[in-house]
Write a protein that binds this DNA or RNA. Sequence first.
DNA 1: CTTGACCGGGG
DNA 2: GTGTACGGTCAAG
Length: 811
Amino acid sequence: MFKVEKRILAVAMKVRILDTDYVVEDGEVRLRLFCKNDQEESILCVDEKFLPYFYAVPEDDVEGLKEKVEETNFSKDEEDLKISETEVKELKDNNKVIKALKIYTNIPASVTKLKNEIWDLPETKECREFDIPFYRRYMIDKNLRIGETYELKGKKQEADDFKRKIKLESIKQTSSQDRTFEWDTLAFDIEVYQDKIIMVSLFSENFKKLLTIEDIDREYSEVFENEKELLKEFRKVINSQDPDIITGYNTDEFDFKVLRERFEEHKISMDIGRNGERMKFNRRGRFAGARVKGRMHLDIYPFVTHVLAPGLESERLDLDSVAEELLGKRKDQMTWEEMKNSWKNKEDLEKFADYAVKDSQLAYELGEEIIPQIIELSRVTGLIPFDACRLTYGQLTENFLLREAHDRNIIAQNRPGREERSKRQRQTAYEGGFVYKPEPGLYENIATLDFRSLYPTVMVSHNISPETLNLEDCDERYKVEKLGYDFCQDRKGFFPELIQELVEDRYEIKEKMGKEDTEIDYNVLNSEQKAKKILANSFYGYLGYEGARWYSRECAETTTYLGRKYIEETIEKAEEAGFEVTYGDTDSLFIRKEGMGQKEIENFLNKINQDLPDFMELEFEGLFKRGFFTSTDSGEGAKKKYALIDEEGSMKITGFEQVRRDWSPIAKETQKKVLRKVLEDNVDDAVEITKETIEMLKEGEVPVEKLKIYTTLTKKPEEYDSTAPHVEAAKKAIKKGDKIEPETTVEYVITRKGKTISDKAKLVKYAEDYDPDYYIEKQIIPVTLRVLKVFGYTEGQLKGKGRQSGLSRFS
DNA sequence: CTTGACCGGGG
DNA sequence: GTGTACGGTCAAG
């Protein structure tokens, strides 16, 4: 006989998590996991059993503290602070084992208050781990990660906020991990005119739409009566498309901010969360992240600035530049002026619409490249992707450390207060990397070598870690005489252990990548190895970062000291082997020799690597046909400013002005052309190009686009204390009746009229002429002379052929 | 040389 | 939100 139950309550399923948060209901905390099951259904899973806690470290007697805490009734502002439970724990603290009292309370908000009360007790030495956000605490303690699959058991609950809701009983990782699944991703972008939203473009794998309020002849465009109707449709699209990931470029600081304003203005609520919740901003210091519950809103821009920027060539981090570098694709070229005119005059709206759609498409494609990296970084650090894409290097590292510390039964250090931070900041800087000063000039046939992950490998090789430093009790020490520090070698330190694991994992992954043939696996693995590289490289910086819990100036100082030692020794050995060293910086050196070939370089590398500690390695980076090194004003070799060219003619330029936005295009272009000519061993042509450019400037033949310099005004022009060209240019435009709001990018030109540079600065549209002298003296001469003075050229020679100055008017 | 103001991305 | 967290450049002092 079958026994049929009316309702089956118990459920078990395989899920992946995509977002977590908590709510407080009836004075009790409920941790929520937003999941998807293997049927791609959204599930809300609620854990009512996990309690917030922190630690109190006793002055001496932990049992005494326990008794005191248990018998006291704590309260703050007439609010009872409940202690749910206490427990004595043995934990590793630095190189010791201590006893600490683990104190549980009922709701997260009580932790801060209770911590203050308990820290005030005479029996308490200090409190620890009281500032870890509750959802992160949960993820750490339960060892949960986004991007992995879990087996969960629980009971089905009826709920009006979520279709499938489960009261959690247990959750554990599934024995086999499936990492080939994809998240539904939707990119969007808004266009604004006079503070109102005129277009919203949305793009995903199988969806492409432009919501707008003008009739535009495009099949993907849909027209609405007004902004309010458009916004309602935006909300509808998000909810019907129901994406796991919402992405875009600078959506925290722009799109979602504007959207919130406009939704408020029309008194409609932006409920686009999976449980019907509204979009809310999570403030974190200087920035606010737009949080959409149950989905991952991943803004690409902060991740680019915090994590990817150091590895990018481009100095500018706008969508156009980043997409060009990472995807080889650019935005449609349309200026802000053109967009405004198009909308104002209702001309070429199709072009504007195409531009808008292309923007969200580009954000989507950039997301395809970057989001896997964010997800993997989230998986490795154990943070939710929402955090992983917004936190800085130091914070990412710290969250990784918190999790790894927890796994090793290590109690976390406290974050430094204001006082401590500024004290750390005031300490005199320690010496950084070694830079070998080049002899200015042009060189043929240069090989570049570098130490693979110099600082991480130095830390592993010498067991550099805060808890191995200057121990009283230690058998074998690595002594750094010069600095007066020693590092215990008896057992592996916390930091070296983590670095070694990450580096070795990376090798393994890279090996696997060579074997795997499905594209998805390759991409996941590639993202994972990138994430591990990012982390492994972050520890040195972290140890010297004043906001770090595990701050250790001594460790950071020793790491750079040993880095210098190794590079200097290598330079010496290169010279002994008959190479000429032309340049070196921190972890790299440039060497050359008459008739030098691949083989000879390899032999040298092998010799060096034999003498290096196990974990360290000097690698071949590239062979260049020529290299150019410039000089400082005093004629000595300049550090960190050089250009290389390879056999194929591709240039690698470091440190020169040509990448920076505050130089006019004409100056940047000319410098690049001059560098190329020099690297082609054609200094005469380089000089000729300079002279020609100067002539063109004098004759007024240079178009305004090549002369404009741009900067963004972040406040109203009159609110600035200091004078700066872009501010003055804006002020003049206001006098002419222009309305210039904060946040506008001003494009200005230096004109003839006026005394100072600021006097002369005018907005492009009001500039009737330009000051050839300024562009020659302050732009062209400095950037070209930076290169050509090495060959004995002077300012006078470059200005040469003194012809009469023309009118320099824009025709 | 040190200090303080300013900017970034988006339209 | 178990909050209140950047980093680099440039002109002025």
